[in-house]
Design a protein around this nucleic acid. Structure first.
Lengths: 184, 184
DNA sequence: CCGATAAAAAACTAAATAGTTCAATATCTC
DNA sequence: GAGATATTGAACTATTTAGTTTTTTATCGG
């Protein structure tokens, strides 16, 4: 049987994720990943094919954990869920700001195709969930049209987390936005 | 007097800008900049202090040229200008997609502080111009509040250019958005 | 407790990078 | 046209990178 390994895959993902989340793919070195995870290159390379593989695994892990929060599936569906999604979707836990998935979009050029697939699939899912919530409010316009517009606004909120702007201004924007779309 | 140099600063900026615009700072090598500008490292380093300096110069150059388009100062001010800004602000000239300034936001961590200053100053300007246009439409809500929300939506549209989504879907989103804010 | 086995640590490799230096070269002034 | 001068090109340096190989070390079954 031999020596048992001193870490779990989950553990590594949980610790590597914030690093990629904050610094992106290119600006994250193996050295930093070793430091953050406490696992040495050998360990990392037995568990993951390469840096790209680890990155994509982190991305999936992120999206899963975000999904589990169920911000858009709370009953009753409606505007309230949309507002909560906009307000609490982009996280703010110390270093990791905004949305890892949205952040990754700027690196598609150097990321494996898989990353593109994961991100777009998740966006499609979000859009469906948004549309479901919107539909329940019986708006005049097509729910899917409103949903895709909401997702763009969400994307904007996410990248703006790279600015040192206040939480208050973000909340204000969301409230103005919600007022606008409730009339659609 | 000696030998005259075979390039102008403007020329270099014009050619280096699309490269940074597309690939960002980290993923652009000196080699690629030499190729794109046709100017060798020696030349680049006599004109610019280092890669960072060149990047910031490109960013300024970009914002100046965008400013000159005057999308938000066309008379009469109003919603129409806002709509044009959203539709034609993020460029689509082949390789360079979206907004160079918004793209840069994801790299603040590794960019000189100057870049942060340039970007935020420009955003403040955009917000003032947006507010002026909105004010002329006499909305119920505070023009500045609407303006900052519009800017977030704009930011979202810009990063979404990293996705291979159609021009049509972008237009549709903007139209939905305009319908929403015209009622504010 | 011993030897097989698997993990972890560390040394190593090859390639790419930003930035520098130095020699070659072209053009202007006189 | 000669010589000063600034530009250009190319060789060079030092560092960092992802990834591999080798050595050491811990743990399990017998």
């Amino acid at each position: 049987m031999g020596r048992p390994k001193g870490f779990s895959r989950e553990e590594v993902l949980e610790k590597a994720m914030p690093v990629f989340w904050k610094h992106g793919f290119a600006d994250t070195s193996l050295q930093e990943l070793e430091r953050a995870t406490g696992v040495n290159k050998s360990g990392l390379y037995t568990e993951f094919r390469d840096k790209e593989d680890l990155f994509v695994a982190c991305l999936r892990h992120y999206l899963e954990s975000q999904g589990k929060r169920g911000l858009l599936t709370k009953e009753p569906l409606g505007w309230k869920n949309v507002e909560t999604f906009l307000k609490n979707g982009p996280l703010n836990k110390g270093e990791q700001q905004g949305c890892f998935s949205i952040n990754s979009m700027r690196e598609f050029a150097i990321l494996p195709d898989e990353a593109y697939g994961v991100v777009t699939e998740n966006r499609a899912l979000l859009q469906r969930l948004l549309a479901l919530n919107i539909e329940s409010e019986k708006p005049f316009m097509a729910p899917s049209a409103i949903a895709e517009m909401v997702l763009s606004f969400f994307s904007g909120l996410c990248i703006e987390r790279n600015l040192k702007s206040s939480k208050a201004s973000s909340t204000r924007k969301i409230e103005t936005f919600m007022t606008a779309i409730r009339s659609l």
